[in-house]
């Protein structure tokens, strides 16, 4: 086995920035290990110039599976494409930046290859001639140094763990290949899609975000969240759960399938702190959590946590902040 394959995701006709960040990190790792790096791209109607430009981010070759089955965002046809690429390429490692699709695709690939899989990796190191990841654990209080005993190793990195640069403008040869699709991968199909509609203000520029989750009880709970946000001169954010429930617009959603935000202050109210939420806000300067459930994982990565009734604490805080103003 030789070489590193990076599964690069295409969203809206562009290679995702997260994928490019991992590709660049793979190039640094590959240089240390003496392994070349291929970008594996799956989609439909992909633009050759954009694909070749992945050479500017460290890809030696861009290997492309172009098929309508791969344009749906469904992971299993991508598992087939990666397995086909593995048969030809004999890669030692597979990497991808976590997304809804890539995490499932590389999990499927690991199962098919009998390969070890590490998820939520935040660092990639070359140690003793092999890849050893740093996998975050116990609410980010510890880094486990995870390597592989299997011939092939599969790594899903935490979303936003590796920021992309502008690249060096280079290009790489683009080679197309035809995946062998399995029956079960074709037994799951996309039957509808609604684009997310941006209706509210852009929260990614706010210095202070006050975020609400399921713990607000219902949509009316956002009233006090808005008041606190206004007192701070900030904006309102929301979790996926409350957006899915229709309590607040999608444009305010923070997390894996929403926005990534880095305000100076993030106040999480009634938010449990699932990993899908965490990856969108962990870069915030100071994190405050208010939750009545002392077991909520959000307390593991907050700077200041209040176990209590947000219906009492939030209005008090609003009044105090206003009084200072």
């Amino acid at each position: 086995m030789a070489g590193i394959a990076v599964l690069c995701e295409v969203q809206g006709g562009e290679v995702a920035r997260g994928s490019i960040g991992v590709l660049e990190e793979a190039a640094r790792l590959g240089a240390a290990l003496g392994e070349s790096v291929d970008a594996i791209v799956c989609g439909s109607g992909l633009d050759d110039a954009k694909l070749a430009a992945l050479g500017g981010f460290g890809a030696t070759t861009v290997r492309v599976a172009d098929d309508a089955l791969l344009a749906s965002g469904i992971a299993q046809p991508v598992v087939d494409a990666c397995a086909t690429a593995q048969e030809a390429g004999g890669y030692r490692y597979w990497l991808a930046a976590a997304s809804i699709m890539t995490a499932d695709a590389l999990a499927g690939l690991a199962a098919r290859l009998g390969a070890g899989i590490v998820i939520d990796a935040v660092e990639l190191h070359a140690e003793g001639g092999a890849l050893v990841t740093r996998r975050s654990g116990l609410g980010d209080s510890v880094l486990a140094h995870c390597g592989f005993t299997s011939t092939v190793g599969v790594v899903v990195t935490r979303a936003n763990a590796f920021a992309a640069t502008d690249g060096n403008g280079g290009t790489a040869p683009v080679e197309r290949f035809a995946p062998t699709f399995r029956a079960w991968s074709q037994a799951v199909t996309l039957v509808g899609h609604e684009d997310a509609v941006e209706t509210g203000p852009d929260i990614s520029a706010a210095d202070v975000l006050v975020a609400g989750g399921r713990g607000l009880g219902d949509a009316s709970g956002f009233g006090q969240i808005e008041e606190l946000a206004t007192a701070f001169g900030g904006a309102v954010a929301a979790t996926r759960a409350v957006v899915d429930a229709g309590w607040y617009p999608y444009s305010a959603q923070v997390g894996q399938t929403g926005k990534t935000v880095t305000p100076k202050l993030y106040v999480a109210c009634g938010i449990s702190g699932a990993i899908q939420h965490k990856v969108g806000m962990q870069g915030s300067g100071t994190i405050v959590a208010i939750n009545k459930d002392k077991n909520a994982p959000i307390f593991d990565y907050a700077d200041f946590g209040i176990v209590g009734d947000l219906n009492a604490v939030v209005p008090q805080l609003t009044a105090l902040v206003k009084a200072r103003g």
Binding site: G114, A115, G116, I117, V118, V122, V132, R134, S136, D140, S141, V142, L143, A144, H145, C146, G147, F148, T149, S150, G153, I287, K294, F299, D300, Y301, A302, D303, F304, G305, I306, V307, G308, D309, A312, V313, Q316, L317, L320
Partner: peptide, 26 residues
């Protein structure tokens, strides 16, 4: 198929202050 060769402390956040609201938490 995976092995953990060691553990380390991540850089980053310090300790979390967690308190139960007694009316003065805000």
């Amino acid at each position: 198929a995976t092995s953990v060769g060691g553990l380390s402390k991540p850089a980053g956040r310090g300790d979390t202050i967690v308190l139960e609201d007694d009316g003065t938490a805000a």
